[in-house]
């Protein structure tokens, strides 16, 4: 049955066109390096650009040095978060979406940006207003956190404030943080089949406390059937969906809408 499905995927004959035609316009376009592609996207301001550049290449020290200079020149630390750090990260996520750069690049840049944000916050006199907060954690009992690490980096790359509760995070701690932060969404990942039941406990506790919010669950052990049975559960199959889900929530999607948009069957 599955084979039939695969064959149906493309009934018509197809070919590799390279031997029969040349798109000279594509050929003429010189291979653009990630650095060149980024060059066109940086902010013009001479104070902001080096910071954005340092974010792009993942140079943590360069980020802090650039911020230091800009702040001592009288720029507002909170404005620098938006204009220089998130501005630089926008370049990263744009080029990642276009497959000019890859996940490891995003991870480096995300770390550099985070360093920068912490530095700016330490220098700021007022609180910042991020476009939304997301809480991420790894299921209680589970220490496999690569999936969560990627999710956190991609969310930050897209300008969200992420509260990272780390691995093996007790159910109560997750619920407490939701109560305190009132985030847009909560994510939980689990690799071990034995640990994903923690998500059910979290879901029940959130319900008990009237803390309705989309609870995105994913990771090796987790499947859509399990997540669909949780009242707030949304199944996340791949990490890059996380920022897209957050964006959907910002434009008004609830759990049902998210399932409609992201669930497979």
């Amino acid at each position: 049955m599955a084979l039939k499905k695969i064959k149906e995927r493309s009934m018509a004959l197809d070919i590799d066109p390279d031997d029969i035609l040349v798109r000279y316009n594509v050929r003429l376009e010189k291979e653009i390096t990630p650095e060149e592609a980024a060059e066109e996207l940086y902010p013009d301001d001479p104070h902001l650009k080096p910071i954005a550049q340092a974010v792009f290449v993942g140079d943590e020290e360069g980020v802090v040095a650039g911020l230091e200079k800009a702040i001592s020149g009288g720029m507002d630390p909170l404005k620098l978060i938006d204009d220089a750090l998130i501005g630089g990260m926008n370049v990263v996520s744009k080029l990642y979406d276009e497959a000019v750069i890859y996940l490891p690049d995003v991870m480096l840049s995300s770390d550099a940006m985070q360093k920068g944000i912490e530095y700016c916050k330490s220098k700021a006199t007022s609180d910042m207003k991020p476009k939304g907060t997301v809480i991420c954690h790894v299921a209680e009992g589970d220490v496999h956190d690569i999936g969560k690490t990627i999710v956190v980096a991609l969310l930050r790359a897209n300008g969200y404030n992420v509260v990272d509760l780390g691995r093996d995070c007790p159910v109560e701690e997750v619920v407490e943080h939701v109560e305190k932060e009132r985030p847009l969404m909560l994510t939980g990942t689990a690799l071990m089949t034995t640990t994903m039941y923690a998500f059910k406990h979290i879901n029940d506790k959130l319900k008990e406390k009237n803390l309705a919010l989309p609870f995105v669950c994913g990771g090796g052990a987790v499947n859509q059937d399990f997540v669909s049975k949780l009242e707030f559960g949304v199944y996340g199959e791949e990490a890059p969906q996380a920022p897209r889900m957050a964006a959907s929530i910002l434009s008004g999607a609830n759990v049902g809408k998210l399932r409609e948009e992201f669930h497979k069957h």
């Binding site: 018509a12 197809d14 066109p17 029969i20 035609l21 798109r23």
Partner: peptide
């Protein structure tokens, strides 16, 4: 299909 494929990717 030959007609179609000769220009599909042009």
């Amino acid at each position: 299909d030959l007609f179609m494929l000769s220009d599909k990717y042009r």
